[in-house]
């Protein structure tokens, strides 16, 4: 198999693009996709700081690597979920990456903020562990960005993540979720920072390949709580479709973004308030994070 660009030996085939690339040309392809994502959705300004949410996994570290290479002023944020050895190892990957690149890394402990680590939150709430984990991450990413005066949070969500989320929303016709599925969400309240996903044009196999080729030491092991997660079941279904029809995930997501999302966007009208306790944005009076923290405190 030959590289589409230089004709040399290919290291990666991208069936959805009917192409294959050598290592150097694939990395250029990858960076071009990120540049195009940032340009199309006006995700980032050159002079502003960017908070990059990092987990120690391939996607977030690949994203951080590209943004640094592109010259953005980045600060990493690692949220320590307290998931036993997994958190210890993933944090170490982030710290090693930050030190090697000479970039700042902020670390926050979920246990300090909520009152207990994710495994305890799961026991107390009796909800899937990903529920309390996702809620805590979303809340803390926004709050830390505000505290640090950083106007935008970048996450490592890729094409597969986005297609799987869209699939889940459509499967349950969660029409209220559809307008918020976007590669870039603007700040709609003074206490909400912008949120962007510069990897949305790239599959997770492509981000894994980029991380491997750049010799990024990421954590390959899956979160022990992710087994059986609905998002993984959705990804497995979509991967079978992709295998049978290369480009299926791309067409599903990009078709939605280009043609369907605007219709749902017009239908959404939400009033945003500030949580009476912490001041973060909520649609009610007490935000879900404070409610979660209350529940944990009552039980621990």
């Amino acid at each position: 198999m030959k590289c589409r660009k230089c004709g040399g030996a290919a290291v990666l085939e991208l069936r959805r693009h009917n192409a294959a690339f050598c290592a150097a040309d694939f990395q250029e392809f990858f960076r071009n996709q990120v540049r195009e994502a940032i340009r199309k959705y006006r995700m980032l300004e050159r002079e502003e700081r960017v908070l990059v949410a990092v987990s120690g996994g391939k996607d977030s570290l690949a994203l951080w690597d590209v943004l640094i290479a592109e010259g953005y002023d980045t600060t990493g944020l690692y949220l320590d979920l307290g998931i036993f050895d997994y958190s210890v190892e993933s944090r170490a990957r982030c710290e090693t990456f930050a030190a090697a690149h000479g970039v700042p890394l902020l670390v926050r402990q979920v246990a300090d903020e909520v009152g207990a680590p994710v495994p305890v939150i799961q026991r107390v709430t009796r909800r899937p562990p990903c529920s309390g984990c996702g809620l805590s991450k979303r809340y803390l990413m926004n709050r830390v960005a505000l505290e640090e005066g950083i106007p935008v949070v970048a996450t490592g969500h890729n094409l597969d993540d986005e297609a799987a989320t869209l699939f889940g929303s459509v499967m349950h016709w969660q029409t209220e979720a559809l307008p918020r599925q976007s590669p870039a969400l603007p700040s709609t309240h003074p206490r909400l920072v912008r949120r962007v996903k510069p990897l949305y044009r790239l599959s997770e196999r492509e981000t894994a390949a980029y991380a491997f080729l750049k010799k990024i030491d990421y954590i390959v092991e899956e979160c022990p709580f992710a087994a059986g997660a609905t998002s993984i079941a959705h990804k497995e279904v979509l991967s079978r479709l992709e295998d049978a029809s290369p480009g299926a995930k791309h067409n599903f997501l990009f078709g939605f973004l280009d043609r369907a999302r605007p219709a749902f966007e017009r239908a959404e009208a939400v009033t945003l308030n500030e949580c009476v306790r912490c001041g973060q944005v909520t649609t009610g009076t007490l935000c879900a994070f404070c409610k979660l923290a209350d529940q944990v405190k009552r039980s621990v």
Partner: peptide, 19 residues
């Protein structure tokens, strides 16, 4: 054969409505 699929907590804006 290194798996590339990851999943679990969704921190994306689709599920990220402030609550």
């Amino acid at each position: 054969l290194r798996p590339v699929m990851s999943g679990g907590a969704d921190t994306g804006p689709a599920s990220g409505r402030p609550r």
